[in-house]
Structure formats: C-alpha cells, structure tokens
C-alpha cells in the first residue's frame, strides 16, 4: 500500500504540532514564573548595592560583581553554627523517622495481632491533625523535661511529626512485598529482627529515600518550632537564623540576598541529587492511599 498524503493526514499532523506548541508554551511560561524569583535573588546576591538597584534583572558584570553580601553574612551572622544545627536536627530526625517508622510499618504489615488495625488508625491520625496544635503543651513538656533551647527538643518533635506519614507510606509499600522472601529467611533461620534489618530494609530502600526527601523539607524549612522551642543563639536553625538576620539587616540588601541564597542553595543541591528518586517514589506509591 502506498502512502498518500491525504488532507486528513495532513490536518492531523498540523493539529498535533499546534497542540504540542501549546503544551510547551504553557509549561514553559509557568516554569519561568516558578524559578524566576529564585534566580533573581541568587543573581543579585552576587552584585553590589548599585548593581542590585540599577539593573536588578541583569547578570552580574565586572563593575557590579561583588560578594560583599556574603562577607557580611559570614562575619556577622553565625551561619556555620546555624547550618550545623539544622543539619544535626534534620539528619537525626530523619534517621529516627526512617528507622522507627520502618519498624512500625513492618510490624503492621507483617504480623497478625489483635491491635493491628486499631494501631494503624491511631498512627495515621497524625497525618490529619497537625502537631502544632499541641504547641502549648509541647512547650510545657519541654520545660518540664528541661529540654528547652536544645536541639533534642526539636528532634523529638520532628520525629513525632514525621512518623505518621512515614508509617503510612511504608506500610502501604511493605504490604506489596512478597511474603515468600521473608518466609524463606525464616526457614533459613533468621530471627524476626534480622529479617527486618537484612531482608526487609534493603527491599524498601528506594521508598525510604522518598520518605526521607518528603520528611526533610518541612523539617529543614520549619520556622515555628525553632522559634518557640529553641530560639537561643546556640540552637538556632538556618531558617530561623535567616529570618532574624534579615530582620536586623533590612537595609543591607546584598547581605539579605546573600543570606537568602545561602539558605536556598543546599536545598537545591539536595533536590538536584534526589529529584529522580523523589518523582519515581511519588509515582510509585505515595498516592495509593
């Protein structure tokens, strides 16, 4: 059969091209809206005051290039400390969320016991009810435990906050794991603990990464609990540090922009590393519920 370029075929092809152009136009337009503000802040953080005000949209040039903002931030603010605080809080909380969450999810998905369904619902309640509503009592509790102005207080709260969603996602995923492989390990003589650590954990590693990224964002970015539980200079997180730094330096634009960039960059770097993981994780299981 010879191919004849019928009018219908041609119209179809033109239509498809037009549609594709439309799709790209919309997506591109929104992508620009999404990243333009970030770009403009990062760009201007590398300019001097004149450059920032006279040509805010231009790339830094030799006359306008300057890192004075960063210099101010690094000397005036205690950002290295804030970074290490944020890092400690985030990493330790994530570790606890993933470890404890995976343990609980394993128990809920693997074993038949009386309270199983009830416990599942109890833990998942936390997804619906924001932990912040208990702030009043959390603060009192931390005062009683003498944990105010410690990183531990933040770690405990963030762990409690992150566990429900982690348990939920991990339980859903672990239910899909083959029962055979755990049984096989049992026949091979592994204890229930070793089955969890040596068989189940390696199998859920990809999902753990997704849960990690998801849980990380609200912890790293939180302002509320650092403000209330750990606002001392020694325990400030980056987010709180930036917030207060900007409060003091409102007129020093280079410093403000530099501090913002300093807070943005690590998140972007992490995101660049994990973004594929994140997407595939979301599409794999997070929306099942």
């Amino acid at each position: 059969m010879s191919t004849v370029d019928t009018t219908r075929a041609r119209r179809g092809r033109m239509g498809r091209l037009g549609a594709a152009a439309g799709v790209h136009a919309v997506l591109l337009a929104y992508t620009i809206i999404a990243i333009f503000p970030v770009l403009i802040v990062v760009l201007n953080s590398f300019k001097n005051r004149r450059g920032i005000f006279t040509e805010p949209l231009a790339l830094p040039r030799t006359e306008t290039f300057s890192v004075e903002g960063y210099a101010t931030v690094l000397t005036e603010g205690n950002f290295l400390l804030y970074y290490s605080n944020s890092l400690i809080v985030t990493v330790v909380s994530l570790f606890l969320i993933l470890l404890f969450g995976a343990m609980a999810a394993h128990a809920l998905s693997e074993y038949r016991f009386k309270l199983n369904a009830l416990l599942g619902v109890y833990l998942i309640l936390g997804i619906m009810v924001p932990i912040r509503l208990g702030t009043v009592a959390i603060l009192q509790l931390m005062v009683d435990l003498s944990l105010v102005n410690t990183l531990i207080s933040l770690i405990l709260v963030y762990t409690a906050q992150g566990l429900p969603i982690a348990v939920f996602i991990l339980t859903e995923f672990m239910r899909t794991l083959s029962r055979d492989i755990k049984d096989c390990a049992r026949v091979d003589g592994l204890s229930e603990y070793r089955i969890f650590f040596e068989v189940v954990l390696p199998l859920v590693r990809p999902v753990l990464a997704t849960v990690a990224v998801f849980s990380m964002i609200p912890i790293w970015n939180d302002l509320w609990f650092p403000l209330i539980l750990a606002s001392s200079d020694a325990t400030k997180t980056v987010t709180l540090g930036v917030q207060q730094f900007i409060g003091q330096y409102t007129v020093n634009w280079s410093a403000v922009l530099a501090s913002l960039s300093i807070a943005i960059l690590p998140v972007l770097v992490l995101y660049a590393i994990f973004s594929r993981q994140l997407i595939s994780g979301i599409t794999a299981g997070a929306v099942k519920g």
């Binding site: 083959s178 055979d180 492989i181 049984d183 096989c184 049992r186 026949v187 091979d188 003589g189 592994l190």
Partner: peptide, 15 residues
Amino acid sequence: APSDRGIAMVFQSYA
C-alpha cells in the same frame, strides 16, 4: 522454628 525442622523450601516467587 522453621529453621530447626530440617526442611528447605522453594517458593513460587523464587524469593
């Protein structure tokens, strides 16, 4: 316990 019964098992999903 399964591992002490002197058995070995082959599963449908290979496991």
